[in-house]
Design a protein around this nucleic acid. Structure first.
Lengths: 332, 332
DNA sequence: CTGAAAGCGCTTACAG
DNA sequence: CTGAAAGCGCTTACAG
């Protein structure tokens, strides 16, 4: 910019004005500046501009793993809202590792992103308190933050699991297995709660052995599914409480010896399986968009009165019957 | 930082030294600085630091659509390499719109990202020449850049399509349809080339009506598939040249009246369909990782001699037989 | 070991 | 309409 000013024989401020399209520059002066810009191949350094301005026009989205379809759908939705607000988007994956989550979150904050959306991996987010106090809005997504009173945008996990379980009950099942993620994970706990609520509401007893929570690797899920679906006490239906569990269960149980099955979270091609896979579908686009809107509302102080308090916002789920969840107990 | 220096009663440089863990500070001095940092809740502003340093420790990845599984797998791979190099990652989606691609790419460059990886949407990338000349490395991914001599990391599209088509030929097919994306798209053209090469190599004639390229929306693909698979001249096998085409074809053709089918690009659950879906699988993780490594090699001048010339790097594809591509002509 | 000065590339007041 | 000065928050080179 200094070079451009020198080449055009004008002051720095005049170059700045031309670059920013501000009014109050004689046409001939502007032309001279533009010629110099062209000749020198000048492009404004936005990082420098933003340093002076105080904002960085960027937000960060911290995910569990961006290659996961759920995460990438969240990303797209957040990106779209950010673009509307003139912001670029940083993304990062914690790989479900609390230390990495923290490291990345603080790295984003050190860059002074204008806001941060976090899909939490850890169970203690107090490290973000100084950031929030110093004015960086933080919104938690998919799971609430821990030890911290901040906005959270979540699926109606309990409601969805309850609806899915009730659907199996409505098709005649009484003995229903629940295979889920580690109970320390908020979504897993909520979904188990929904399962229990549906059983209780139908007046059905729950044998604790029907509930199998833990890591979602293939081997563990296969073992759980095998245990639940064999022997004299076998369940007649299965509620698989997340994507990876559902996938592992489908692989372990060939279609011809599969109990009724409802999964939490939709899968591409789910409708082309035989039978089609019945799921409780989340709406990642709505989740991501709402989280982003909330973030910008906070950033631009658009929240007034009681809206301004940290809130937990829920997005409903939708039950999509496709065949696997409508099989009566006998056929299993 | 100024405040910290004042509170600790030391110079700016001493604070800087403590923050950066540089040696040559008396323990008691360091302690005083650390106390002040703690008391004031100071966190270094990396954006300012990076302005002085000249680098931004960030790279950008410009995708077609991050919510697409292929794109998000690329992202994850790029992110992982970037993390190794201490860089954060910007991501953005062009939505296959050349104007948006350009706008985003230039916005990233204006932020002075250290490097840019682009999955091209447009057909003219000369707008990036000044950026490359001024020292920002650019690597094209999945498709080559146009009008510009830059690195490109691609799948072996022609080879993959040739292998997929040859696989159908090996199973007795002579009349094979090819349904693909718009021929202006590099990958689509390359895959069509591979199809023709396989047919030529087997000495089989190609009826031009067997090749149907165009937009990949459901309606158009359904029409194409319908036309190709009905009537006296129906083909006995179909090569669907990308993900969306394969998906649309699967939806249009129920399993019981489906010709043999090989798709380009893998799909989750493809192995659970009946029959399993035979595909030519790309390796998005290898693609993304190689592009990122190439970018950093350029950034850090690790390329010597003839390696330094802009290159086109290819990643092989893998044919995964699962059933749909091994049906003989009679059964269609 | 420590710090005052200059500067990264821009913008924000403020005079002319 | 135009520009010189000061400053965003840090680091780099240089004295002490």
């Amino acid at each position: 910019m200094k070079d451009v000013a020198a080449a055009a024989g004008v002051g720095l401020k005049t170059v700045s004005r031309v670059v920013n399209g501000e009014s109050g520059v004689t046409p001939e002066m502007a032309a001279r500046v533009r010629a110099a810009i062209e000749a020198l191949g000048f492009r404004r350094n936005d990082s420098a501009r933003l340093l002076r301005t105080g904002r960085t026009a960027s937000v960060a989205l911290l995910l569990e793993d961006i290659s996961d379809p759920f995460s990438s759908a969240l990303s797209r939705a957040v990106e779209q809202v950010a673009a509307t607000e003139g912001c670029l988007l940083f993304t990062g994956s914690s790989a479900e590792d609390p230390a990495r989550e923290r490291e990345l979150a603080l790295a984003f904050c050190a860059r002074r992103v204008d806001g941060l959306i976090v899909v939490p991996a850890g169970d203690d987010h107090r490290y973000l308190l100084p950031e929030i106090e110093s004015g960086t809005p933080v919104v938690f997504l998919d799971r609430p933050g821990a030890g911290i009173d901040a906005d959270a945008v979540l699926s109606d996990n309990a409601g969805g699991a309850k609806a899915g379980t009730a659907h199996l009950i409505a098709h005649g099942h009484r003995r229903i297995g629940f295979v889920g993620d580690q109970p320390t994970i908020h979504t897993a706990a909520e979904r188990a709660r929904g399962y229990r609520a549906a059983m209780a509401e139908a007046g059905l007893p729950v044998d604790e052995r029907w509930i199998d929570c833990g890591p979602t690797d293939r081997a563990r899920v296969a073992a759980a599914v095998h245990r639940l679906t064999t022997g004299p006490d076998a369940v007649t239906a299965l509620f698989t409480a997340n994507n990876r569990v559902t996938l592992a269960a489908l692989h372990h149980l060939p279609a011809d010896r599969r109990p009724a099955l409802v999964g939490f979270d939709d899968l591409e091609l789910a409708d082309l399986l035989t039978p089609g896979l019945t799921v409780v579908a989340q709406d990642p686009v709505a989740l991501g968009a709402l989280a982003a809107r909330r973030l910008f509302d906070r950033l631009f102080d658009r929240l007034a009165g009681e809206d301004a308090a940290p809130a937990r916002l829920e997005i409903p789920t939708v039950l999509v019957p496709r065949g696997s969840g409508e099989t009566p107990p006998g056929e299993g």
